[in-house]
Write a protein that binds this DNA or RNA. Structure first.
Lengths: 337, 337
DNA sequence: TTTTTTATTTGGACCGGTCCAAATCGTGAG
DNA sequence: CTCACGATTTGGACCGGTCCAAATAAAAAA
């Protein structure tokens, strides 16, 4: 009934049409310096003329490795991860890799499925931000699979793998210190306590700064809420209802801070005037928040770029010792503190 | 020097270990009802025991099609697209597909590279939001490649392909109408005029509503700015500096509106009291904006889900007539209008 | 028990590249 | 004019699945 569909144009059809062997065509396609320029040009001409399309499945099959890099993040809804992803993509694309993106929504099962899938696709490597509660053994497991890995943002147990992240402790310390230097004494912390290395670090940074300045931390000022705008809203509500309101609030991250700003607005309060607010991450929204949010910038995009670079490095030298890149957060003063 | 690395476990090694043929193993792996349950169980046992990993490159090579679906968006920085992406992913994953994500940043060259790359990977299909200024011929080209395609958000020329989007015209019409019903007469529009079908539709929706109510549109009230928070900022600045300030502003989308809110804050004005503001899209940030943004909701996630479903449908029936899904925006009244 | 019919299995030809040892070409040295 | 040696080119054995026609086994019918 239907036409004997025109066989796909392959490296062999090209070889035939160009009067060379398929091996030569293969060489030409990967721009090998071995082939004589004249031959190469002849082959390219045929390639263009026949509209040849390189078949990466075939290539990956025989090379035993694809040009796909898996990138796994938890929450695309958080612009921080989006920026990171963009950074990752930029560098990888430059090097001829393509990113297979997946997000886990903090679900361990999803995370596992995704990893398996990437393995099945013969990914060249993985850039992973582990979901909360990931086993500290995860990185070893991936290593055992022979998958080059770079972990970002959240460290897992020992750092015996390439890692890119920011110094949460120092960042929060500085944020708090800044508020103290502005004369604040009653400073609250809205975020999550525990569960992960990052949350611990952030809270500890805050606590240390307070302690070192001899400021007491009222139990009620450590507000434990989900890491989201909604969480921020809840957190500041709790604080505002206390009889001793804090004069400043340090937030786990910008999303939380934005929730705080939102709620303050509802109460007719103005952040930066009535109460100081400081965030963490410096996502794009921070700049355009109302009022513009003072925050600790961690340059997500740069982190993504670094992660890619570490991965490329590792691909080139699988046995090098792990590389750790930790970014120092920088205070960006805007209107809220 | 190094061990004769242990040959990968393949369907053949499993066959041998399980005492069946590789064909049977293949059948078992795809859960074919043809094999006797007892045999299947025996094979699964070996599969688990040997830690077999399915090789999708090999599979795709022989099937001539992978389980990868390419998703191409323009601007991941816009939460709208992120939501869409999440919707897409959810449905595709359920059906055993995996998404190869790419973003073009509105760059035609990038868009083309990405398409080529997906073709090389034998993508099962493509979900594409075309970059501005894409040739109206793009969809035909992709079709000629034999790549099943669903276009989202931005239509390109004739709708002779599957499409999912929202009714920009009706949405903007309703938004404007709502403001008019609240007694506003001096209503400005901040967005981009022309360049794309969507921008035309949105502006026309606004204009029609104004016209129908016999309201004159002051030339100065049609502010042409980039579609971003920064653009919104610029736009409202222009409006505020005029001698006849509008009492309400309709924005191209929420990002623009958020820029407007931000700038109003700087001027000490309160959106919803001093001047009404209405957005479009209802991204997550809208709810937590300060003040909470009134906007036209278009349910990005749903659009993503629909797009995936259309694609799955198309994969099942390549020759069906194109399916068009247009979502009617819904007004969500919050504090700014 | 023999013959059908139906349920399971199987061998082998692909899919379209990569890789490498071996063959062939071309040119300057002897 | 030959020979050696670097520059090019090439044939064929994989890579690890899919698919299908054909073979076998098992159950049902005669």
């Amino acid at each position: 009934m239907n036409e004997p569909l025109p066989r796909n144009v392959t490296i062999r059809s090209i070889a035939k049409a160009a009067g060379v062997s398929k091996s030569t065509v293969s060489l030409v396609l990967k721009r090998s310096p071995l082939v004589k320029p004249a031959t190469a040009e002849k082959v390219w001409a045929v390639v263009r003329q026949l509209g040849y399309v390189y078949n990466r499945n075939a290539a990956s099959l025989s090379r035993g490795r694809s040009n796909i890099v898996g990138v796994i993040v938890n929450d695309l809804t958080n612009p921080f991860f989006v920026e990171l992803l963009i950074g990752v993509e930029r560098i990888l694309n430059e090097s001829g890799f393509i990113t297979l993106m997946a997000h886990t929504a903090e679900d361990l099962t999803t995370q596992n499925n995704v990893l398996v899938s990437m393995r099945e696709h013969n990914a060249a490597g993985i850039i992973l931000c582990p979901a909360y509660d990931s086993s500290v053994d995860l990185t070893n497991q991936i290593a055992d699979w022979g998958l080059p890995l770079v972990v970002v943002v959240r460290q897992l147990g020992e750092l015996n793998y390439d890692f890119v992240g920011s110094d949460s402790y120092a960042g929060m310390y500085e944020a708090t210190q800044y508020l103290i230097s502005k004369g604040h004494r009653a400073i609250a912390y809205v975020g999550r306590s525990g569960r992960s290395h990052v949350s611990e670090q952030r809270r500890n940074g805050y606590l240390s700064a307070m302690n070192e300045s001899g400021l007491e931390v009222d139990e009620e000022w450590l507000v434990d809420v989900p890491i989201s705008a909604k969480g921020g809203q809840e957190g500041i509500q709790v604080l505002l209802r206390q009889n001793r309101r804090p004069s400043a609030v340090v937030c786990y991250n910008d999303r939380v801070a934005i929730g705080v700003l939102h709620e303050l607005g509802k109460w007719g309060l103005r952040a930066g005037q009535d109460i100081a607010v400081i965030g963490f991450d410096d996502i794009a929204e921070a700049e355009h928040a109302n009022p513009p949010l003072t925050t600790m910038a961690v340059n997500a995009r740069l982190q993504g770029e670094l992660a890619s670079k570490l991965l490329l490095q590792r691909l080139g030298n699988p046995d090098a010792t792990p590389d750790i890149a930790v970014i120092e957060p920088k205070l960006v003063v805007r209107a809220t503190a």
